[in-house]
């Protein structure tokens, strides 16, 4: 579904990602692990076109997306979350999720200004879609809260919810469990299952919590210093000597 072929990028002198290639199959949960600064977030930024690759290519659904504009990525069916959350802070959870529906709009500015009946119909449709996501992730009690006032853990979940509102084919999650306690992390692993099985969304996830990784993912890729160490099942990767040394410690 998604294939990265020899992608590389460097910032100044630092080679953040060095010729990494991987394939993500439709319907799987693919995790990326690695020590801090390994280049995991950078890979997300390359896929979602926030950075340009130095060389290499990314294909999604047999389409080369290496050069499409940033805002077009969402329309192709790729949604993402950010490591330290990037929400629309001054708006409510509901408004944030409605913004997530933006790519599904069929109206134009003129219709919006006049609020024609078609706009109302669309708003109701969006709202229904948003409520489904709210129900899935149990965010009912936060619906009308302003993001700036929410605790960190809830923001992480709102970000996942916003990404789901895009109805993506591929979901990129950057450390979804950071800031959640073990109980909440467990809920997350169930939600991941729902996302994968009920919604049929392929997931790429950057994660440090090995429990969650081994519970939720089908395959794992380990990186260090921008280079690939290995790709395999959670058990294989967890016991790889290089991974043990660089990532897990001891």
């Amino acid at each position: 579904m998604l294939a990265a072929d020899n992608i590389a990028v460097s910032f100044g002198g630092i080679k953040a990602v060095k010729d990494v290639s991987f394939n993500v199959e439709r319907g799987e949960v693919f995790s990326i692990i690695g020590p801090n600064g390994a280049g995991k977030t950078t890979i997300f930024n390359l896929i979602s076109r926030i950075y340009d690759v130095d060389h290499g290519s990314v294909t999604f659904d047999d389409k080369d997306i290496t050069n499409v504009p940033t805002h077009a990525i969402a329309e192709l069916g790729i949604a993402r979350t950010f490591q330290n959350t990037e929400l629309f802070e001054r708006e409510t959870v509901l408004k944030n999720l409605l913004i997530g529906c933006h790519i599904h709009r069929k109206t134009n500015l003129l219709k919006d200004l006049l609020f024609l009946p078609s706009v109302r119909v669309q708003e109701l449709e969006f709202r229904r879609a948003v409520e489904e996501v709210i129900d899935l992730l149990d965010l009912q009690s936060y619906r009308d809260k302003v993001i700036g006032n929410l605790p960190y853990g809830v923001r992480k979940m709102v970000e996942v919810a916003r990404a789901l509102c895009l109805k993506p084919k591929l979901l990129l999650l950057d450390e979804p469990s950071s800031g959640l306690n073990p109980e909440e992390t467990e809920d997350l692993s169930f939600w991941l299952e729902d996302i994968k099985e009920d919604l049929g969304i392929t997931v790429i996830m950057v994660e440090h919590d090995m429990n969650l990784v081994s519970r939720a993912s089908d395959r794992v890729m380990a990186l260090t210093d921008g280079a690939l160490i290995t790709i395999g099942t959670p058990a294989e990767v967890q016991n790889h000597p290089e991974v043990l040394r660089a990532f897990l410690g001891d």
Binding site: Q83, Y152, G179, H208, M210, L248, G249
Partner: peptide, 14 residues
């Protein structure tokens, strides 16, 4: 406040 947030397991130990 959550010093281990976003750190890899090895660093959490450290």
């Amino acid at each position: 406040d959550e010093p281990s947030l976003g750190l890899a397991p090895k660093l959490v130990h450290e």
